[in-house]
Computed example of a mutant assay.
Amino acid sequence: MGAVGAGMLALNAASLAVLAVSGYLGGKLAYHYGVRVADEVTQSDGFIPVRGRIRSGGLS
């Protein structure tokens, strides 16, 4: 076994960064915006059009 090249280490670091960013964005969608995985009937039961929402001064 030889030493790991610099290119492979850079690719590994870039992959880890992409994984971290996608995890952060997925958490933001799930916990901040309430996006969830559900069937169409369950999803439509919880859907409120943007015009019907009351904004509390922040982003919604």
Rank of each mutant, 00 (worst) to 15 (best):
L11K: 12
D39S: 04
V18Q: 02
K28M: 14
A17W: 00
A17V: 03
L16S: 12
G23R: 03
R51W: 01
A3H: 07
R55Q: 06
L25H: 08
G46M: 06
A14K: 05
S44P: 01
N12R: 09
A13H: 01
G46Y: 07
R55M: 00
A13Q: 04
V21S: 00
L19E: 06
L16G: 07
D45I: 08
Y31H: 10
G34C: 00
G7K: 08
A3N: 12
V4P: 07
S22R: 06
A14D: 02
L11I: 07
L29A: 09
G52A: 15
G5Q: 06
L25P: 00
Q43W: 12
N12A: 15
Y33D: 11
L16M: 09
Q43Y: 14
L29W: 07
P49D: 08
L16N: 05
G26M: 14
V35N: 04
M1H: 14
L59H: 02
L16E: 04
R53M: 09
G58S: 13
Y24G: 07
A10P: 00
G7V: 09
G7H: 06
L59F: 09
Y33T: 05
A38H: 07
P49S: 11
G23H: 00
R51A: 11
L59S: 13
L25G: 07
Y31Q: 08
L9S: 03
L16C: 04
N12P: 00
I54R: 02
A3R: 11
H32E: 13
A20L: 08
S56Y: 10
S60R: 03
A30W: 06
L59Y: 09
E40T: 09
L19H: 03
R55D: 05
Y31I: 07
V4H: 11
L16V: 05
D39H: 00
N12E: 14
V37K: 12
A10G: 01
V50G: 06
G23Q: 06
V37M: 10
V4I: 15
V18W: 00
S56N: 13
V50R: 09
D39T: 02
I54V: 05
G26Y: 14
A10L: 08
A17G: 09
V37P: 05
L11P: 00
V18H: 02
G26N: 13
Y31S: 03
M1E: 14
G57N: 01
V37A: 15
D39W: 01
S60E: 05
Y24Q: 03
L16I: 05
V41G: 10
L11N: 14
S60P: 00
G5K: 05
R55E: 04
G46T: 11
V21I: 10
A3T: 14
